[in-house]
Structures are given as structure tokens and as C-alpha cells.
């Protein structure tokens, strides 16, 4: 079998210079022709086992899990949907009707589970982050044995009338950003992005005007691309 020096170093999870030296010193059963390494994969595998070197043959090599960049806000909102005129007088009423409306959380059992977790979280401490917004979210990922778990998403729900949410600034809440995420990392990512947006006056003004989905998407995508580029 033939591989380039770099590929072989990848298989052995080490630096090409080291592989080069191993070949020169005769510590590894590989022959080199310029930058091409020639070896018998079975012999090399045996050698790797004896010497406790990790060796992943190239054909079996599973693609290294690409550092999956958590998707941006825009994609999460696209998934979660934007809803207007959510009825309700109290926190629990509002949350119940919001969860009912969320299309991407399918199935009775999942909806119940999500609602239960959201209420739990609100009982711990309010998720009202000020300026009339709240970010209800479950404390741990929502998962049901039979129905699986909902995808990463953020549902934007504009309430029909502001509700007292015991927010940090005591202002009544008129919009919810419900965050559902399968992992804690994605959860934190969405949370940090939405709180970043909410710190911006322009975004707060936009939200206060209950924008159309197009306008909201445009604004959110703008923040996404700036944050992705690291220029913000």
C-alpha cells in the first residue's frame, strides 16, 4: 500500500517529521520513496499494536468529526418558527399556548415534556432578560424514549398582550425566544447569540415593532454573519 508521508502521519496520529525519522531509524516497517511511503497494512497494523501506536488504516478511517459549528440564530429561528399573538395572562398560560403553537415539536408527549421542563425552569428563576424579552428554555435537553428529541431550534413568540414575567428590569414581557437544543453546547451558543442581539438598541427597537418574518430574518442573519466572522 502507498500513502504520502502526510497521510501516513495522519493515520498514525503524529507529525510527518516523526514518521520520517522512524523510517530512517528503522523503527517502523515502512519504506520511503521520496514522499511516498510504501508498506504492508497488515504488518503495520501488527507493529502498531505491539508498540502501542494508534493506527487507523486509511480506508477504515472515519472522517474526523468535523468541528460542527453550531448553526446560527437565523437557521434556528427558521426551524423553530415565528408566531404572533400568543394568548395568555400568566407565565404558565403563555408558555402552554406557545408550546401548542410550536410546529417543530411534534407529538403530544414531547410537547408535554417540553412544557413541564420550561415551567420547571421558570419556577427556579425567571428567564426574563429585560427589555420585554424572555428566553424560556429547559434546563436539560428534552428527550423522550419513544419520540426522540426535537431538533435545535428557537421559536420566536410575540404575545398578544405583555405579561408580568418578573424580569430583571421588572418590565412586562412581550416576546419569548424559546430555546430547544439537543446539547448544552448548542444551547449556550443560541443563548449567547440572542443575548448579544438583545443588547443592541437597533435589535430591541426592531423586536418592539413586532417585525415581519422577512425583516427579522434579515436582521438576525446580519448578526450571525458578523459573529461568525468574528468582526463583531
Amino acid at each position: 500500500m502507498q500513502l504520502s508521508l502526510e497521510e501516513l502521519a495522519g493515520c498514525l496520529d503524529t507529525h510527518p517529521d516523526i514518521v520520517l525519522r522512524w523510517i530512517r531509524q528503522g523503527r517502523i516497517p515502512v519504506k520511503r520513496r521520496q514522499d511516498i511511503c510504501v508498506f504492508n497494512p497488515e504488518v503495520l497494523e501488527k507493529w502498531a499494536a505491539v508498540n502501542h501506536v494508534s493506527f487507523t488504516p486509511p480506508e477504515k478511517k472515519t472522517r474526523p468529526l468535523l468541528e460542527e459549528k453550531p448553526s446560527g440564530l437565523a437557521r434556528a429561528i427558521e426551524k423553530g418558527g415565528i408566531y404572533y399573538d400568543i394568548p395568555g395572562e400568566t407565565v404558565s398560560d403563555v408558555l402552554r399556548s406557545a408550546v401548542e403553537r410550536m410546529e417543530s415539536v411534534a407529538g403530544r408527549r414531547l410537547k408535554d415534556l417540553l412544557l413541564e421542563k420550561l415551567l420547571d425552569r421558570e419556577n427556579m428563576m425567571s428567564t426574563g432578560i429585560g427589555s420585554g424579552a424572555a428566553v424560556p428554555h429547559p434546563r436539560s435537553p428534552v428527550r423522550h424514549e419513544a419520540d426522540g428529541q426535537p431538533e435545535e431550534q428557537m421559536a420566536v413568540c410575540f404575545l398578544s398582550s405583555p405579561v408580568d414575567w418578573q424580569a430583571v428590569d421588572n418590565k412586562p414581557v412581550f416576546v419569548l425566544f424559546i430555546i430547544v437544543a439537543p446539547t448544552a453546547r448548542e444551547h449556550l451558543h443560541l443563548l449567547s447569540r440572542i443575548s448579544y442581539c438583545m443588547r443592541d438598541n437597533a435589535f430591541r427597537d426592531l423586536i418592539a415593532g413586532r417585525p415581519d418574518p422577512e425583516d427579522l430574518f434579515a436582521a438576525v442573519s446580519g448578526y450571525d454573519s458578523r459573529l461568525d466572522a468574528g468582526t463583531a
Binding site: 503524529t14 507529525h15 516523526i18 522512524w22 523503527r27 505491539v50 508498540n51 502501542h52 501506536v53
Partner: peptide, 12 residues
């Protein structure tokens, strides 16, 4: 990490 690999390689 490298040292350990090298040591194992040189001593087996």
C-alpha cells in the same frame, strides 16, 4: 504525548 510514544517505541 510524543515522548511516551517514542519511549514505548524504543523500548519494545
Amino acid at each position: 504525548d510524543r515522548y511516551r510514544k517514542e519511549l514505548m517505541l524504543q523500548t519494545t
